[in-house]
Each structure stands twice: as C-alpha cells, then as structure tokens.
Design a protein around this nucleic acid. Sequence first.
DNA 1: ATAGGGTTACGT
DNA 2: ACGTAACCCTAT
Length: 383
Amino acid sequence: MTPADAFLILDFLAGNRLIPHSVFTTLLASLPSVSPHTSPRLRAGLALRALDAVLSVSESEMDAPTLMHKARAVLADPDFAPFFPQHLAAPGSADDAPAAAVAHLKRLLDVEWASLPPSALEIAAERIVGSGALHSWANADHAQRSKLRLLVGESTAREILDKLRRPDASINYPATLPQVDNAPKTNGASHCAQQNDEDKSGLVKQNAKADRPQQDSSRHQQNLAQGASNSQLKESSVTMASIRGMGPDITGFMEEAAPRVAGQFAPDNIKNHQVTGSKHSLMERNPSASTYEWDGSDSEGKRPAAKRRLPIFERTAKPSPAAAHKTRKKWSEKQEKTLLEGVQKYGKGNWKDIKMAYPDVFEDRSTVDLKDKFRNLERHLCA
DNA sequence: ATAGGGTTACGT
DNA sequence: ACGTAACCCTAT
C-alpha cells in the first residue's frame, strides 16, 4: 500500500467517530506512516479523537475535576492544540463547576464532530456512487467505466447505467454539466459570527460574500462509514477490502477531491451579516386570520344585504384557529443527538435530507426547526 | 428549500 | 425582568 492510500484510509477513519479508538489505533499502527502535514482535516480528526478518548471515560470511574484536568491537558498538547478551534481550546473558567464544564465541553465536541468536513475518500465515493455518479459515469470512457464497475459492484453499476440511459436523466446530467464540487457549506472553525461592528459595513459584507460562494453541499458523506447501520445504501457501499485492492485505481478520482479538505481551520470567515433594513411590520405577525369585513362605504355598501353572501366554500377555506401556532416542544436529547448525526452524515444545510433520514425522530419537527435547532447548538460554541 | 433576522413563550 | 430555546417570517 502506498502512503497516499494510507492517507486516504486514515483520513477517512480518523474523522469518523463511530470507529472505536481501539480499532483506529490498531490500524494506525499497521498502516504506513502518513506525513503529519498532509491534511488539516486528518489532524483535526486526530485532535477530536484524542479529546473524545479522555471524555468518554464514564464519570463513575473518574470525577469531573480530574476529567476536566485531563481534557485541558489534551487541549494544551502541542500535537493537538493547533487543530482545536479557539472556542474549544479555551474552555471557560468553570472551575467552580467541573461537572458543568465537562458537560459543556462534550456538547461543543459533539458539534465539532458534526461539522467535520467529509474525507477525501467520502467525497470520491460520492462522485462514484453518490450524487455525482451520473456525471462521473457519463464522462467516463470505456476503460474508466470498467474501473468504476469494479469499484461499485455489478448491480450498482447497472443501476447507474440505467439511470444514465433514461431520457430524463440526460436532461438533468448533460455531458457538458460543469460539476462544481461537493464541499460542505460549513467548516469546523467558522461557526462564530464576527462580532465587530465595523465588519458590518457594506464593503466588508460584499467581500465576505465573494470569499464564500455558495456551493452544493455534499450529501451522504459518511455512507461508507455507516453502511453497516444505514440500510439505505448497503448495496452500494464500497468495502475496505475493495479499497485496498483498488488503491491505484481510485486515486484518479481523488485528484479533484483532495483540495477540498484543505484549509478547514483557516481563520474564520467573516459572517455574511444581513444589513438590509428592509424588514417591515415589526409590530405584527402576519395575520393568517380570516376576517371578512364590509367597510360600508362606496357602492358596495348600497348593495342589498341578500346579495352580500360569501361564497359557499367559505367555511372550508377558513383556516383552522388551532393551526395558528404550533405548541412549543422542548427538544429531546435523542433528537439533538440525531440531528448532530444527521449533520455529520448529510452536511449542514441539508435539512430535508436529514429529516427524511429519521422520519420517526423528527416527525413533529420541520426542516426549519432542524435548522433553527442546529443554529442554537452552534451558538453554544460562541458563547 | 434554505438562511438569517425577528418574535414569543418559558424557565430562572 | 431577563436570557434563551423554540418558533415565525421572508428574501433569495
């Protein structure tokens, strides 16, 4: 196995929280060593993993102050410190309440894990069997398709080729489609809004916008990792065995993906703050009320009362007063965890995908609810 | 469909 | 009274 292949695997495994530390360290020892400067994402994954290892000790075995002490040691470790976002690296002055500090740190860690971008391997997989599959296959020549077929397996290959042949597919995926990229909409270190008032000027706003073009976000980033627990894509998952066997073949699909994992811990982007003062109606919620009213003026007022009859469908058209406001419901811990998992899997911003992936958990939550909730979770990081 | 500003209910 | 989580509204 080449060092490049080893990197792909480590990058993938390190960033996946579901891989147990014991498994990971075993693999780490058996793979060729990887240059520490290869990827910020890999380093960040290792850092989060180290902190996870400390914090995952059950609190019955270790008291909170000791736990916090160990966590601080990891956060200060020169090997890891540069790869922790600032808000993680500087835990609050909560020495008076270590238990709360531990809980807080764990929540921050959850959000950080959820925000870790997909690995190069996952991005490549996305191109081969995911949302970029039709495009990749459409542009592949015969030799390339043979390689792709080996990678995805016969049945998946047939599925993709079937879709490719369908006329509606060719409309959606013309050969000239300029596939941009699958990078997630967020990165690990840019949760916090820039608070400086000066940064709210129009000029800065424009620059910030130009620096951060909106892109299609990646989908199903971690289906590889979670194939065992995710029934949706079991059939199209690429096994580690096949990756080992195919090393040189898949690296060709990495070339475009590689740059996307770089720079995730670059200095914070300036938040694209809305300065538009165009909001109106500060006092009133949009009244969905149905008030049928005659003003009595003008010619209409002179019409005989018998003719001022409302349409017969009036009653059915009237919105039910009960639907006016959803009853406020606190998010359960399970829902929070599931949301974080969903963001990790599908990427921040793909609220519809996340909702559909866990229909039972989010039954009474809208996609907007998911978005709002994750925003709240992120805000904890910036406090 | 999503992002982000605005509003409100609820716990303290 | 105040801060915030949950929810609403609207531009894009």
